[in-house]
Design a protein around this nucleic acid. Structure first.
Lengths: 100, 100
DNA sequence: TTGACATATTGAAGAACATCGATATAATAT
DNA sequence: ATATTATATCGATGTTCTTCAATATGTCAA
């Protein structure tokens, strides 16, 4: 049962921005609209949409439309996969494993 | 016993480059000179030095001079810490733990 | 179908970054 | 001291990225 492989460069690039990590933290355990995120981050709406697109393309957020809004949430599963793959590649002698 | 905290933005930025990940992979389990890395990557020497400096600043490689050479090796400990911190921040419901 | 609201896309400007040739610094041997 | 080898720094160039105003698209209500 081989895991679907993760492109660790794409993964790292996707999370390598302060604004993006702010967004990720905010919608980590919640389903938030773009406007919610705009308000909580004090970042312009096009900027938020841009970052959400990058995260989406990397598979790190899920989105669903509800009426006029589009709700986003962090894909923790993918985050964990990315982290584990990085650790597997670059810390093979300091094992890190997913639990549960 | 709180772990020394990791700046996940700095960590992600440090590993968010293809050439850097090539270098990291190459000196993951070996102590290599800059020239060794140059030869194994087909990247110009100043470029390699530049990337090594970024990794060093982020605490992700260790270096020691041996004669004229400077030997580098990936700091797996720090890599594991970085990965775990990212997972802790962004995948709290999909636990990832360091072993051993 | 018009208006109001929510999000996405476009386009432009500036910042940050990767790359490498040229050169400087460091270490060693003769 | 000088030459040789190894690495680091400098400086310039082109690329990628972030940001946001303006605008387009999508959704729904009246």
């Amino acid at each position: 049962m081989k895991q679907k492989s993760v492109d660790t460069v794409e993964f790292a690039k996707a999370i390598a921005d302060e604004t993006r990590q702010k967004i990720m933290a905010i919608c980590c355990c919640e389903l938030l609209s773009v406007n919610d995120i705009v308000e909580k981050t004090n970042v312009a709406q096009p900027t938020v949409s841009h970052h959400l697109k990058i995260l989406k393309t990397a598979g790190l957020v899920r989105s669903e439309r509800r009426g006029k809004q589009v709700l986003y949430t962090l894909n923790q599963e993918r985050m964990a996969e990315g982290c584990c793959q990085v650790a597997e590649n670059f810390a093979p002698e300091h094992p890190v494993e997913r639990m549960g």
